[in-house]
């Protein structure tokens, strides 16, 4: 019965209530195709935007005062949240690796595990995610509000390039301040491990420090700082991009903010994998 009646249903014109297997598969293909096209479209537009931003970075005028203000915003004001994250990550890492390694009588490796995990992975990734939440969201909300209230249009009519005036200072500050933040996070994270190692787990202070220095190589720190620069670029670029292309009204700004944080966080995790691969394999 079902087979017969399906002959009369033209493909692509099926009512939603139809559950014929062929139409379900076709619907799925159509849906997948559309989201693939949407994805290609947004990657293209993001690429175009990135090109404009990079070009604007190297042509005058640069708004120095704005760049400095963003240095403060992105660097200084993120210090507390990034520092706390690093401190407790270092502490829990020491605790966790101690309980794990003591089963194999390898407690001595705690210091090296802490320093390598912090510098290579945890400091850059966690700092990146925290800054995505703190800075990426606020950039998207601020620029999105300017879009919705026509302030970006007003900039253009006053002969000021909004990309140069709004986007370039934020992206530059992201790329430059993130490595500095992560370097500080490295130090605080290792200090957290040290505090737990010496005061909770009973390592000797000098032994812990020697172990740390023996194991850490320049590349461990440098790879983390390069990652930090890339993550800073991702967070600020996506914050600006989503704000700049914000939809209309408060709802548009809300969606832009969410997108900025979610897309930056996912891209950070993806880029982290490939950067690790590039550095250590």
């Amino acid at each position: 019965m079902a087979k017969d009646s399906s002959k009369n249903i033209p493909i692509g014109h099926t009512p939603k209530s139809s559950f014929h297997p062929v139409t379900i598969v076709l619907d799925m293909c159509q849906g997948a195709g559309r989201s693939l096209l949407d994805l290609a479209d947004s990657i293209g537009r993001l690429g175009l935007f990135t090109g404009k931003v990079l070009a604007a970075c190297v042509t005058p005028p640069l708004y120095l005062k704005h760049i400095l203000r963003q240095f403060m915003n992105i660097g200084f004001y993120s210090l507390a949240v990034v520092g706390m994250t690093a401190l407790f990550s270092g502490m829990v890492l020491a605790l966790q690796s101690y309980t794990g390694f003591s089963r194999f009588n390898a407690e001595g490796a705690v210091a090296s595990v802490v320093v390598l995990s912090i510098t290579r992975e945890l400091a850059p990734v966690l700092a990146g995610l925290m800054v995505a939440g703190r800075i990426g969201a606020s950039i998207a909300a601020e620029i999105g509000t300017m879009r919705v209230t026509e302030q970006i249009d007003a900039l253009t009519t006053l002969s000021v390039n909004p990309i140069k005036y709004l986007v370039v200072p934020r992206v530059m500050a992201g790329v430059i301040m993130m490595p500095i933040l992560v370097l500080i996070a490295d130090i605080i994270g290792v200090m957290g491990g040290y505090l737990v190692g010496v005061h909770v787990l009973g390592f000797s202070a000098s032994g812990y420090i020697t172990q740390t220095w023996d194991f850490v190589e320049p590349i461990d720190v440098i790879s983390g700082l390069v990652k930090a620069g890339v993550f800073g670029f991702i967070v600020t670029l996506l914050g600006c991009y989503n704000g700049y292309n914000s939809g209309r009204g408060a709802q548009g700004v809300g969606a832009a903010t969410t997108n900025a944080v979610v897309s930056a966080s996912i891209l950070i995790l993806i880029f982290n994998y490939f950067l690790t691969q590039a550095f250590f394999s």
Binding site: T149, E150, Q151, T157
Partner: peptide, 19 residues
């Protein structure tokens, strides 16, 4: 377009002041 923009002044309906 940017070169031409100098000819124009615009009062936006919503004001569009830089807050």
């Amino acid at each position: 377009r940017n070169a031409m923009m100098g000819k124009f002044g615009m009062l936006f309906q919503g004001g569009a002041l830089f807050d």
